[in-house]
Amino acid sequence: MSVSGVCADPVVRDQWYALAAVDEIGADVSTRLLGLPIGYGLGPGGAARAWRADDGAPIPARVSYGYLWASVGEPPAEVFDVPETREPDRRIFNAGTLGLAVSAPRAVENFLDIAHFPYVHRGLLGDEPHTEVADYDVVDRDGEIWALGCRFHQPRAAAASTEEVVAQYQYRVPHPYCAMLYKSAPGHPDRLDAMGIFTHPLDDERIRAHLFLCLLDDVNTDATIRRFQQTILAQDMPILENQHPKRLPLDPRAETPVRCDKTAIAYRRWLSSLGVTYGVIPAGAG
């Protein structure tokens, strides 16, 4: 049984975390980040502000990709780069933010998983009997995990889909608690839609998950796309919240992976190699 406390893990502490979509911030908000009570809001001209709740001391805050990001440690100069956000024909917005009783690494790992599509997202991202996950590659690219060459049969891959397709997927893990995915964009055969899960860890067993979209869809309204994506996220919820333990075990013997879990295996190894201890059960700790 874990005690949800303030984060002492420097790797996790010294990261940026998306707290809220800027469009959705009104009055100042009280929340927690990695167990620490904080506040955040927008100052004059939309400048990001965040502070510790106990003494009001400012903490690092910035706006990137439409979100207010903050850190309770010493974060890098920039949030990880998402080059697709500089392509002018993409639509960039938050599909929704959902509170979940799960650790950030469990949520990220679920985001990286394909095999559950036909069971949890039946009729949308997958369908029986098309349950096979074809082999794909997992590589280290500049210290990030990338899964390349994933393909999956999907009845309705996106809000803009008009027919079933074999969707192409790539995954990218640029941050211990955030992941991106790139998938076939309906109507744009040579390009990929980009979307991401940016987690706001309230503590080591509870998060708010932001679903970041950077899409080529020029057909649907924001509301239609949000509706589709929120449905997907809500379908994942009972699965995510019923995982035990809520923190992600990093010991390779703790949970039994199968071949299609290559990305998850690489993610767990990567967290171990970074020395992450918060939101996980480190190898050898159990």
Partner: peptide, 10 residues
């Protein structure tokens, strides 16, 4: 008729 309940508060 979908109502953009969240985040649109329609």
């Amino acid at each position: 008729v979908p109502v953009d309940f969240y985040p649109g508060w329609e």
